[in-house]
């Protein structure tokens, strides 16, 4: 297939075939764990822990023992490599490591000989990232001595088209809010970077969305307070379809519970990866044009 012929569904179908293969046959490291290679590593890294000069291998070397080296033909069967080939053919030629999660079950010693088995865990995308549009590919790797698992690694890479971004949407085409004299103060506030909440001047009740009459005391004497802009996620969703005017999908929409005790709907920018009910969020104003600024949200790390 040429690049132009690969669709998302084609990619995912090819990926499913690799996933279906499950874990690869254990592949032995080129060499048993040995002191000279450890010594090279200690010298380059600058590691001085004396245990590593007396027979114990540094845990951080787990992957080193089974690296393929210069002979690229050897790795053709590895799930990660096969997945990378699919994306290369589909035009996603660049790669970037994003996550590496290693667990060491026990120290390994000079003389032991580790094997590596790998399986493709997941492929997620396409996703527009800072470097371009791509897919996140996660593999699960297991090192064993004999049948005993000594270390594992979950490894995620982004396979992407550099700079290839979806055509930028014209965000000014979003659905415009109706405003009237009861609600204008809110939008005047966002334009100034203020998150305003209606306050009843008579009884002090806070309220959002606003209205002309206090539901508690029926006074029509209203003002506002400026909220702290801090809140937590009360609920959320990820909108995938249909297309929305002025939005680049998917987007994460949330119901934010403000510190002041009221709720407000907004988009959580970049929220898809990190959001959960209860996540702390902070308001982030997004100016659409001179007429409209939206109160949006960002997850607080």
């Amino acid at each position: 297939m040429s690049t132009a012929e690969w669709t998302h569904d084609d990619i995912m179908a090819a990926v499913e075939e690799i996933k279906a293969l499950g874990e690869s046959e254990p592949k032995p490291a080129r060499d048993p764990i040995n002191q000279p290679m450890i010594n090279n590593w200690l010298e380059a890294i600058g590691e001085t822990d004396p245990r590593y000069t007396s027979g114990e291998a540094p845990p951080a070397m787990a992957q080193v023992w089974t690296m393929d080296g210069l002979d690229h033909t050897k790795r053709a069967a590895a799930p990660l490599h096969r997945t990378m080939q699919i994306f290369d053919e589909a035009g996603f030629k660049s790669v970037l490591g994003t996550n590496c999660d290693q667990v060491y079950l026990r120290p390994v010693e000079v003389g032991e000989h580790v094997t590596l088995s790998a399986r493709l865990d997941s492929v997620v995308g396409p996703k527009v990232t800072g470097v371009g549009e791509g897919y996140f590919v996660t593999t699960e790797n297991t090192w064993r001595v004999g049948d005993e698992v000594v270390a594992t690694m979950s490894f995620r890479v982004l396979k992407f088209k550099p700079g290839a971004r979806k055509p930028a949407v014209d965000k000014t085409r979003l659905v415009r809010p109706q405003m009237n004299q009861d609600t204008a103060y809110f939008w005047e506030g966002t334009a100034l970077g203020e998150l305003r909440i209606q306050k009843c001047n008579a009884c002090g009740e806070l309220r959002h969305p606003p209205g002309p009459m206090c539901p508690t005391c029926h006074a029509a004497d209203r003002g506002y307070v400026v909220a702290s802009g801090k809140g937590t996620v009360f609920s959320f969703l990820v909108h995938h379809a249909p297309q929305l005017p002025g939005k680049e999908l998917p987007i994460t929409l949330a119901l934010i519970e403000l510190e002041e005790g009221l709720r407000m709907v907004g988009e959580v920018q970049g929220g898809r990866e990190s959001i959960a009910i209860g996540s702390p969020v902070q308001v982030a104003f997004e100016k659409i044009d001179d007429d409209l600024t939206l109160a949006q949200w960002a997850v607080v790390e």
Binding site: R176, P177, T183, F236, L253, L255, L294
Partner: peptide
């Protein structure tokens, strides 16, 4: 229309999305 001013501009503008918010909770 005024009620929808506090949802639609953010993109919360389809029946499925409005229900998803309740479903998640």
């Amino acid at each position: 229309g005024l009620d929808n001013a506090f949802t639609y501009p953010y993109g919360l503008s389809t029946p499925a999305a409005t229900v998803a918010m309740q479903a998640q909770r």
